[in-house]
Design a protein around this nucleic acid. Structure first.
Lengths: 126, 126
DNA sequence: AGGCTAGGTATCCGATGGGAACCGCCAGGT
DNA sequence: ACCTGGCGGTTCCCATCGGATACCTAGCCT
């Protein structure tokens, strides 16, 4: 009872839960972080986000678009150019995403250490 | 360049990315939210979090435990009692999780509306 | 003795994630 | 005229994961 208002996220079918399931995804968070500073091209995102494939990036962006967080802008040029940007609704996510990625940056090493410590219960000759 | 410090989350194998992949998961966020107010029993979490199965809950908790975010405390009683609580490292996540779930509560309806609007491009008798 | 509770595990199957390869488009080089 | 190259997207295929169901343990209660 220390400040959390649990209304929403815990019920299986409520909108809040839907929203969590939308963004609480391995790639989605990083993609949103990549979009948070302005319009970005598809290829730029692929380069920016290490390890993502074009297909998964497209899927992620499409899902975000369908849910109104991202707008897609395709220019009829050659070679084709496609830019993605956050909608106003999507922009309200910048802060939460920022908080999360900041945490990851700050505590990533600690998580890694804890993982190593747990997986090495062998060598302890004091 | 409007305030984001991209160092970390975008590189494929850096600790920051690891950390994002650890918590940016559909169930993980909700489980952490459930733990954020103090020790909770396994069964309480199952009841609290609508739709989660015991197996997935256990998996999620074990993963968080392995990464040092959660501590497991099993009492040798009958019937068995097992409590989970955030470690100090895990407690540093309360704020980010809180921000995220608050966003979900606040904007869940808007996401739902956008989804409906996009999936109903039919009726426009203008 | 049999059932109850509470947490965990085993097994199975459908859904999904993800990588590699291919497609279409057209400007520009040769 | 043809082939190549850049960009975005899609198709095919497979490994992995999610989730439901059922079973296990171990003591207390009736």
């Amino acid at each position: 009872m220390s400040g959390f208002v649990p209304g929403g996220v815990f019920l299986a079918d409520c909108p809040g839960r839907l929203a969590v399931e939308l963004i609480a995804d391995k790639w989605t968070v990083v993609v949103l972080a990549g979009l948070s500073e302005g319009p970005v091209r598809h290829g730029e995102l692929v380069e920016l986000i290490g390890g993502i494939s074009r297909k998964v990036l497209t899927q992620t962006l499409r899902r975000l678009e369908a849910h109104g967080l991202v707008r897609r802008h395709a220019y009829a040029e050659v070679p084709p150019r496609v830019e993605y940007e956050l909608t106003p609704l999507g922009a309200t996510l910048i802060d939460p995403i920022h908080t999360l990625t900041e945490w990851a940056r700050a505590h990533g090493d600690a998580v890694l250490e804890a993982l190593d410590a747990n997986s090495e219960p062998a060598a302890h000759h004091s």
